[in-house]
Design a protein around this nucleic acid. Structure first.
Lengths: 212, 212
DNA sequence: GCCAAACTTGACTAAACGGTCAAAACGGAC
DNA sequence: GTCCGTTTTGACCGTTTAGTCAAGTTTGGC
């Protein structure tokens, strides 16, 4: 009755130190669990245990399981987009593509959990982030595709469909995070796969894209 | 008591017509459901409904949920491997790679559910088919990598790590099945993505791999 | 047509799980 | 130290879901 703000998750403007700290702890714990078991495969008890708190306390910060999931996804998406935003029209085309591939591979190595979380969401039809795909993501791809098209028109890059080029780069870079188990099984060595992957991918793509 | 063979799933050798028919119906229904919702997200009731039979009857043929899942995966894996087995040392290297990419893309278009099922299983750490990855899959990749290595040694293909080449081809081809929602959101058109994807991928890979 | 084996299902159970609630513990301002 | 809002939790509830069971129906060989 005299509880004017029953939901701390809604008060983004006024957060206590404890709230910011615990929300961060929860999101980190949830990222690990969700990325391993998926949304349906994850239980609140697992997240609570990993975050070191009781389940009701978890629900004090995020009243619904889906709220935790969306919070984790949102934090992940910004990081995911960032490398593409850096693609610079003023740079050398082949070198810009090289930098983009290197950045995306580094992200796959540094934060494979985020990549897997994202992959899982898309694989199941993007129920929680469909709007992100058709909104900000598509807009960014449109913008960067235009740059690539101009490079091609100037004869500074081999003629390919710029959107499929971007999609293809996503595919080869994220694959090393999402399918890590398979990659390691097939390679059979203890060595980190990504350095060799980088050499191979750069060789194929940069030779394949160099104007002739 | 006088039920010497209580589990029809174990009697692979002696199956009635009804058994073969219903097992096939179940596996088909389960593929659709598992590939959409994942293992945990799928309920036996969904599979039973799609297969047009009662849940207890479903469990008459597959006593455990996991048994259905493994059966679907096994049927899928054979199809998944097939294109790579066709890579022919006697053929022209660049043309053999081209054929392989085309076949894998065709598979993605014809049976995206199978690709997604497989992707989901790997993404979650391959709990049910770890042995397939380190066994038959790795063996096949070893065998075909050797062929590619010889092509490179003969100067008939640009020098790249053959295992990473195969992995990279998997990545770009399966991506169009697994991430279909994202691909369509980014392209924004109603057109089928795969024909344009094929042109782009072939252009990059074949130019990238042609010896220079 | 009869019979036994094969097949099918409605009704049920036990466990897992998302979420609630009321009450206790804590913390910072005075 | 007192007080009040914030944080924390044990106990609980309703639903969902994998799997059981016993009884019914169908099928195929004779």
């Amino acid at each position: 009755m005299n509880r004017p703000e029953p939901d701390p998750a809604l008060r983004a403007t006024t957060r206590t130190r404890i709230q910011s700290r615990n929300r961060e702890i929860i999101v980190q714990a949830a990222l690990e669990v969700f990325s391993t078991y998926g949304f349906r495969g994850t239980t609140l008890d697992q997240i609570a245990a990993k975050a070191g708190m009781s389940k009701p306390n978890l629900l004090y910060y995020f009243p619904r399981k889906e709220g935790i999931y969306v919070a984790v996804l949102e934090e992940t998406l910004t990081e995911w987009l960032e490398p593409l935003t850096r693609l610079d029209e003023a740079g050398d085309p082949v070198d810009e593509i090289r930098k983009y591939i290197v950045l995306k591979l580094e992200l796959s190595r540094r934060n494979p959990a985020a990549s897997r979380l994202f992959a899982n969401e898309i694989l199941h039809g993007a129920p929680s982030i469909g709007g992100f795909l058709t909104g900000p993501l598509r807009a960014l791809v449109d913008e960067k595709s235009a740059i690539i098209s101009r490079w091609i028109a100037e004869g500074r890059l081999a003629p390919v469909d710029p959107r499929h080029l971007i999609i293809t780069i996503w595919a080869v870079t994220q694959h090393y995070a999402d399918f890590d188990v398979q990659v390691r099984a097939v390679l059979g060595s203890e060595a980190e796969p990504i350095p060799d992957a980088e050499a191979t991918i750069l060789s194929i793509f940069l030779n394949g894209l160099r104007p002739r």
